[in-house]
C-alpha cells in the first residue's frame, strides 16, 4: 500500500507540477496580452534539456542538482505519507541547502550572488513556515500530518493570519516576482539566472523537475489549511496559485532588504498574533 502511494507520488507529482507550470505560463502570457506557449511547453523544455550536453564548471556541481531533486522527492513522499511536519520542513531545508551549495561550489560570481540571495530568502521564509506548523500544532495538538487531517475543523478558520503570512512567503519560496532575485526569471536578466547559471542540459533539467515537486509540495501545504473539505482545499489552492501568478506579473522586483523586513516585522508579527490567540483559545 505504502509502496503504491510512494510510486504514485513519485510518478504523478512531476506531471502535475509540470502542468501547473504550463498553466502558469499560459496565464502569464494572457495577462500580458500574448498567446503564450502550448500547455505542455515545460515538458518540452525539460525533455530538450535532458537531451543536451552537460557542461559544467566543476565536476561535482551536477551532484548537487541531483541532490536537490532527490531531497525534494523525499520531502514530498514524506508529506504524502503524512509524517511529522517539522521533519518535512527540515528535509525541505536540506533540499534548498544542496542547491545553494551547488551554486557556491561553482566559483562563479553570478551563481554565488544567487546563492547568497537564496540564503537570505531562507532566512526570510523559514520562521514563517515553522510558525505555520506551530500554529497548526496549537490547534490540533500534533505536528504529524496524519493527526492534523483527523481534525474536523477547518484550520483556516483558526489560522487566517498565518495563512496570509504563509501565502506571502510562498511567493519567496516559489521564487516568483517580486522576490525572484535568486534565480531571476526570463525577462529579468540582471542576474542571468543566479543560482542555476552554471547548470546546463540534464542537470538543469533536474533542477526544473525538482522545482515541480517543490511546487506540488508547497501547494499541498497550503491545502492543509483547508484539509477537512477536499473541494474547498482544491479551490483554495487554485485561488492561491492564481494570486501568485497575478502578483508575479504586476509586481516589480523588490530588494532583499525589503523582503527581509517585510517578512520579519509585519509577517512574523501577524504570525505571532495568530499563534497567541490560538494558544490562548486551546491551551489556557
Amino acid at each position: 500500500m505504502n509502496i503504491q502511494i510512494i510510486a504514485a507520488t513519485i510518478l504523478l507529482a512531476p506531471v502535475i507540477g509540470g502542468l501547473i507550470a504550463g498553466i502558469d505560463r499560459i496565464i502569464t502570457a494572457r495577462m500580458q496580452h500574448r498567446v503564450g506557449p502550448p500547455l505542455l511547453q515545460p515538458f518540452y523544455d525539460v525533455l530538450k534539456l535532458l537531451g543536451k550536453e552537460n557542461i559544467a564548471v566543476t565536476n561535482d556541481q551536477s551532484l548537487y542538482a541531483v541532490l536537490y531533486l532527490v531531497f525534494n522527492v523525499i520531502t514530498l513522499v514524506m508529506f504524502v505519507l503524512q509524517m511529522d511536519l517539522l521533519l518535512i520542513l527540515f528535509m525541505l531545508l536540506l533540499a534548498v541547502a544542496s542547491l545553494v551549495l551547488g551554486a557556491m561550489s561553482a566559483n562563479s560570481p553570478f551563481s554565488k550572488i544567487g546563492a547568497q540571495r537564496e540564503l537570505i530568502a531562507i532566512l526570510a521564509y523559514e520562521p514563517i513556515l515553522i510558525s505555520s506548523v506551530v500554529g497548526m500544532y496549537f490547534v490540533t495538538g500534533s505536528f504529524s500530518i496524519s493527526r492534523i487531517l483527523q481534525i474536523d475543523r477547518m484550520l483556516f478558520i483558526d489560522l487566517p493570519l498565518l495563512f496570509i503570512a504563509f501565502t506571502y512567503v510562498l511567493t519567496i519560496k516559489l521564487r516568483k516576482s517580486p522576490f525572484d532575485f535568486s534565480t531571476s526569471h526570463h525577462g529579468h536578466q540582471e542576474l542571468v539566472k543566479g543560482l542555476t547559471i552554471e547548470y546546463s542540459g540534464p542537470s538543469l533539467a533536474m533542477i526544473e523537475i525538482a522545482h515541480w515537486y517543490e511546487t506540488v509540495l508547497l501547494l499541498l501545504f497550503a491545502g492543509l489549511f483547508f484539509a477537512n473539505n477536499l473541494y474547498v482545499a482544491v479551490a483554495a489552492i487554485a485561488i492561491c496559485y492564481f494570486a501568485e501568478i497575478l502578483v508575479d506579473n504586476i509586481a516589480a522586483r523588490l530588494t532583499w532588504q525589503i523582503m527581509l523586513k517585510s517578512t520579519w516585522i509585519p509577517g512574523l508579527l501577524i504570525a505571532v498574533v495568530n499563534m497567541v490567540w490560538v494558544y490562548i483559545k486551546y491551551h489556557v
Binding site: 552537460n54 557542461i55 559544467a56 566543476t58 541531483v66 560570481p109 553570478f110 552554471e198
Partner: peptide, 12 residues
C-alpha cells in the same frame, strides 16, 4: 550518468 562531458569557464 550526468557527469559533465566538458568543462567550461564560469559565465562572466
Amino acid at each position: 550518468w550526468l557527469k559533465p562531458k566538458r568543462y567550461v569557464q564560469p559565465f562572466l
